[in-house]
Amino acid sequence: MTHFPLTSTLKSSPGTLGRSVLVAIYRKPTVFLGALLILAALAAALFAPYLAPYDPEAFAVGPVLSAPQPGYWFGTDEFGRDMVSRIIWGARETLLVGLLAVSISLGFGLTFGLLAAYLGGWIEKLFMRMLDVLFSFTEILIALACVAILGPSLINATIAVGIAGIPVYGRMTYSLVLVERNKPYIESCRAMGAGHVRIILRHLIPNITPSLIVVGTIGISTAILAASGLSFLGLGAQPPSSEWGAVLAGARDYFSTAPWLLLFPGLAITLVVLGFNLLGDGVRQMLDPKQNK
């Protein structure tokens, strides 16, 4: 589910999208904060080997179950592993899962939605009915069913979240293409003898891309939440993975004795998700004419 529905095609081309993002960051402090959070997470993910003070899976780099203290700012876990290092390395897995899941949703959603809207006819009808059905299932049920079939692992959880998101992006693409399809320029392209493939690749896709990027940005936050939720239930990443949901699941046993183990991974998820939500929402508001009146 994406919590920020688009009301219409964003008034933007891929070229101006970048500029709009910069303007939004400059003008709105919340968007700036969002961008900052995402940058921080990206930096952690990319430069984990240089940033992390310790090997995230190495035992006894510090005392066992130590509260936050200089040198171990987020404390240590039951094996004396450094939580700062685990969180930094975990950013890698967490972000990757979010990106991969959204790519799956977006890839399939785009294909189905576009074909349905462009081709019309019985394909469109079938697509619409399938969407109705899939939306009644709710995403979590689809994800759970996928995990039940594939078995618990981080990659399977990612696939499950990705599949569960297909209807959202399918419907989004569908409604965006529907608007574009009826615009006069498509008609004139066709009149000038442009083929379907050309129209789709050269006109439709570029025109709906900015909207999809914005929705996808917000979608990453949903995907991260869903995947870390599955890991937390034991249906995703397995120990000793430092994926944040899995770290949180392991910390559950130390609920009363070492609460900091719960605090930091949860905070990390919240902040990254917040980052994507703030950035995506801010840019959407800039570009969405209806919201921006």
Partner: peptide, 14 residues
């Protein structure tokens, strides 16, 4: 799952 076994396994892994 359970009985702290995954912790035992993590030590062995190390």
């Amino acid at each position: 799952t359970g009985g702290n076994r995954q912790r035992v396994l993590q030590v062995f892994q190390n």
